[in-house]
Every structure is written in structure tokens, then in C-alpha cells.
Design a binder for these strands. Structure first.
Lengths: 170, 170
DNA sequence: GATGAAATACCCCCGAG
DNA sequence: CTCGGGGGTATTTCATC
């Protein structure tokens, strides 16, 4: 953008695919703070990002309504609820079910053991992040909801020793 | 527990491994509500779970301080920040690095692209859930932070088409 | 769109049951 | 452990620039 003055009617460098509502640096700062602490007071948040509280409130609301902020959630320790065991289950669908993408994932998402569902490209079709009370419960989950399902071809279960999540991101 | 009266000194059925602070049904209800909406007011939360607001506040605080509630985070859409591409990268450590569990994961967690780090049992050692701006950025991340690292043996990258998370759990 | 002030609602410490 | 009340504060709306 050094030679704006030279051409009157030039190609306008429209920001690439900005169908999304714009997220300016102030919004980014707001998102960063809320990702780390969703319960920060509006006044403190406004001071941190350097705007007035009322303005800050409007921006947060706009971010919420535009879908940039998808929600505010408490991060609960699964072990405290008796879910001491976590596992990642790689699922390969049967040949006839691949591409349908409908019934299997819809059912599996409703199970309370399921924390995350990743629909991936590659050797496997889905990765299921689950939390259960015991190895017996894990075995039953796989048997009941996966092995029994005719849409499921193969499953491969890996125990999770430790899981850490970046604060707020994703 | 049908024949308690028959033996005066019998085996006391101590609740299994309850070293953790107890989480009663009311606490469970509180956790469920906060997992879905971390910004619910204390009064509304108290009414939903059927206790007095002041009691509710004490319980929430206790849950926070005991580590059951690990934090409150805003759920941000990665695409809104320009991270349109997500991937799961399976990492197998080199033979000499396995078991050390120190330097590699500490470094990798600090990278802003990394959303989740799963330390797993099985063929792979780590699963990295990352969000990046483009395939070029993904390629650079793998090359810069993984392939170049002498502790890393093999990596296998799978694009994520879709990721859904159960509200609040984990 | 951002700001400042006023009305409302809420949080939180306290004592009591 | 649970329940109410009063001071203090944050949130929200409105009018203005």
C-alpha cells in the first residue's frame, strides 16, 4: 500500500473472504481475555482492552450474536464426576456407511461419555474422545455403541494418560 | 446389605476411593448448569438447583477451590480468528525420547496453534489438535516444531473436517 | 460507533436458625 | 449447612457527541 496515489482506479485489495463479521484488534483482545476467564467483569474487561464499559458490553454482545463467541462454559474435571478413564477411539466406518455422515455421528454425539467427536480425513473416519468410569465401562461403551453398530467397520481404542487443553481456544 | 443386623462387628462398606472432595447430587446439578452456561447469575443458578443463593455461592466457590471446576472459558470459533484449518497430528517419539515426557510436550503446548494435547497409549505417543490459517501454515508447523525436533520420530497428519464438543464436559 | 451518567439488578459479607 | 438483609458494586439502558 505504498503507491496509492499513483493510480486513481486500481484493483481494490478487498480483504480475502471476509463474509464473517469483522474482528478488529480490540475484539481480538476481548476474545483473548474471555477465553482465559469467561467470568471477568465487564468493567475489568473494558479496562484491560482500553475502551469504555458500555462499548465493551456492546462488542461482547455483537461477538456473541455473530457466532464468534459460541458460548461460555465451565471446565469441569471429569475425574471429579467419577469419569477417571479417558480414551480416544478411532472409528472406521463400514464401506456402505461412508459418505452418509448421518445416523452414526448423530447417535454417538448424544452419549454422555462422548466429549469430542472429530470427523477426520485419513485412515480413520472419526476420532471419539470419551470419558468413562472404568475399563469395564469403556469396554461396554465400545461394545454397545460401536461394535454392535452395522455402520461401524473397525475401532481402535487408545487410553489417554493425560489431556491438556489450551485455555479457551477452540 | 440385607443382613446388617446379624453381625455386630462387620466389614464397614467404606465408599470406594473418595479422597476427592465429595460431589453430591446438588453439586452435580450445579456443574451441569455451569457447564452449559458459565455466565448464569448466581440467583438463577440457585433457583435451578433448588437451594438458597448464598448457599449456592459457597458451593460454587468450594467447587472452584477444590479443582472440580478448573476454570471458566469462552468458546471461540477458531475460524473467526483466521484459523480455518484444523488437524489432528499423531506423534510418535523417537526411541531415546520416549519416557522422558518432558521437553517435547512442554514446548509444543506453548505454540498458539495447539488446541489440545493428548498423551496416549498405543502406537502413537501424542495426538495434537491444532488450528491454523492454511495448509501452508500447517506444513510449516509440522516442519518447524515436529520434524525438526530430534525427539520426534514419526508424525501423521489428518485434516479435521468437523469437530463437535459436548457442551462443557471435559 | 463510542462515551458518560442514572436506574436497576446483582453480589457478597454478616448474623441467625 | 442453610437461610434472609443491607451495603457496596457491576450491569444495563438511554441520551449525547
Amino acid at each position: 500500500m505504498a503507491d496509492d496515489r499513483s493510480t486513481g482506479a486500481r484493483f481494490v485489495p478487498v480483504p480475502p473472504k471476509k463474509l464473517r463479521p469483522e474482528v478488529d484488534p480490540v475484539d481480538r483482545a476481548i476474545l483473548h481475555e474471555l477465553a482465559e476467564d469467561a467470568r471477568i467483569t465487564n468493567a475489568a474487561l473494558a479496562q484491560k482492552v482500553g475502551i469504555a464499559p458500555s462499548t465493551c458490553l456492546l462488542r461482547v454482545r455483537a461477538l456473541r450474536e455473530s457466532g464468534v463467541i459460541r458460548g461460555f462454559h465451565a471446565d469441569i474435571d471429569p475425574a471429579a464426576l467419577g469419569h477417571d478413564l479417558q480414551a480416544m477411539i478411532a472409528v472406521k466406518l463400514a464401506a456402505h456407511a461412508r459418505g452418509s455422515m448421518g445416523p452414526f455421528v448423530a447417535r454417538i454425539r448424544r452419549q454422555p461419555e462422548v466429549l469430542d467427536v472429530y470427523f477426520v480425513a485419513g485412515a480413520d473416519d472419526y476420532l471419539l474422545h470419551v470419558a468413562v468410569a472404568s475399563t469395564a465401562a469403556l469396554r461396554e461403551f465400545v461394545a454397545e455403541h460401536l461394535s454392535r453398530d452395522p455402520d461401524v467397520g473397525l475401532t481402535e481404542t487408545s487410553l489417554i494418560f493425560e489431556h491438556t487443553r489450551a485455555a479457551g481456544r477452540s
